[in-house]
Design a protein around this nucleic acid. Sequence first.
DNA 1: AGCGAAATATAACCTAAATCAGGTTTTTAG
DNA 2: CTAAAAACCTGATTTAGGTTATATTTCGCT
Lengths: 236, 236
Amino acid sequence: MKKNKTACENCESRMSGVFCDLDSAELSNISEHKVTNVYKKGQNLFVQGNHPYGLYCVSRGNIKVSKVGADGKESIVRIVKGGDVIGHRSLFTDQNYTATATAMEDSTVCFLDKKFIMKAIQEMPSVAMNIIEKLSRDMGAAENKVSSFHQKNVRERLAELLLLLKESHGEETEDGHIKINIKLTREEMATMIGTANETLIRFISEFKDEGLIEQDGKFIIIKDEDELMNWADANY
Amino acid sequence: MKKNKTACENCESRMSGVFCDLDSAELSNISEHKVTNVYKKGQNLFVQGNHPYGLYCVSRGNIKVSKVGADGKESIVRIVKGGDVIGHRSLFTDQNYTATATAMEDSTVCFLDKKFIMKAIQEMPSVAMNIIEKLSRDMGAAENKVSSFHQKNVRERLAELLLLLKESHGEETEDGHIKINIKLTREEMATMIGTANETLIRFISEFKDEGLIEQDGKFIIIKDEDELMNWADANY
DNA sequence: AGCGAAATATAACCTAAATCAGGTTTTTAG
DNA sequence: CTAAAAACCTGATTTAGGTTATATTTCGCT
């Protein structure tokens, strides 16, 4: 975890986060109060049970937020990408972290002290509003997941996951299809939809056989979005 | 849905909500901008797909927030009681409602116009902060649910549900036990943990046979909390 | 009070998906 | 480059819990 410093003004994810509405004076104020860290793939930003001291703001890279149960089983509850904040949930409720955050690849993440971020919320209504918006959106996603568990089978949840990943990490290829530009193991995908990796692999294979998706090395390419949407909305 | 008006200052849930830190001048300002409605059991405050025009603030009664899937199956994603706000999630993301809110019993609910509540957030940092806290807490609960689905079986999820209901709706009885003071059908409990009602009934019966819980009319009484906690944290 | 409709309960059966077992391929580290 | 370890894949077996069926009890309503 090397430390170095980049100005927020030059951050490649500058426009997408909760600080997007700030002017350059306010931004440079934040710049001065933050620490920038580089995490290697597999390193934790924080682990379940730790006490939170501030807010993490991802500049580059994908971070997975996961919970481990009593039996040691991992569940990925969400994936956070460049521009997003992380660690806010526990920070604002003043509990210890209820999940672990791990870099899925080499990542650059800034850290803001709790006192500073609390002051920012009080003084800059746009920051408060953006945090409220972000929490609301994330909560919507979490509640969707809950009802999907009840109402959909594994095949349907997988179709849904692929479409969500397309939204969050999709990139157009030369031939006009969408490539899911994030490296995920089958195990990780399985824990995202709450199934066993053998089961997940089986349905991935089915989707490939049926021409709904294709594989490009580690990456999945969406070939038939309409059909995936049909499955995600349950039809069998 | 009869209308009448009660001052926030006299609201029985005044101290528990997002407006709890306001002084009486601020409170009476809110009082003047709200509408108070009484909903009969079974009536909807809003339904999935509607456009949100403001914020609901529950004064008295329990409101269930549920989603229906493509197959018509209902899932209760959370239950909101007196003092809590509802409808904020969709309001702040400016989407249509993604769930339906239904009164579980005759309830009193106030409604605040969107413009007014947005202004309140800008001008009263405590309101913004309380909303952030509430969203964070709710989101923690939702993420716990997601990982429970993956990591726990029905018996364990039921034990967990009973303990959560004890926290949110528990009341001490004369003989020192805790009674879950909310009327829920087996069907409703089943949809809260994503199972079939027959299955839920099976495990409720088991818990009764084993002396972990007892029934007092429509209400459940926790008899052996420790054992329930063991089950909720998974041990089989 | 009495009737119909929900809600509750129990048992038998069946299926979706977990688990187990055995491979092959890819990645990583020395 | 090579060995070891991950990751991936497929088939067989088992099982938790969904589904179906049938009673019984309770509730809401006129």
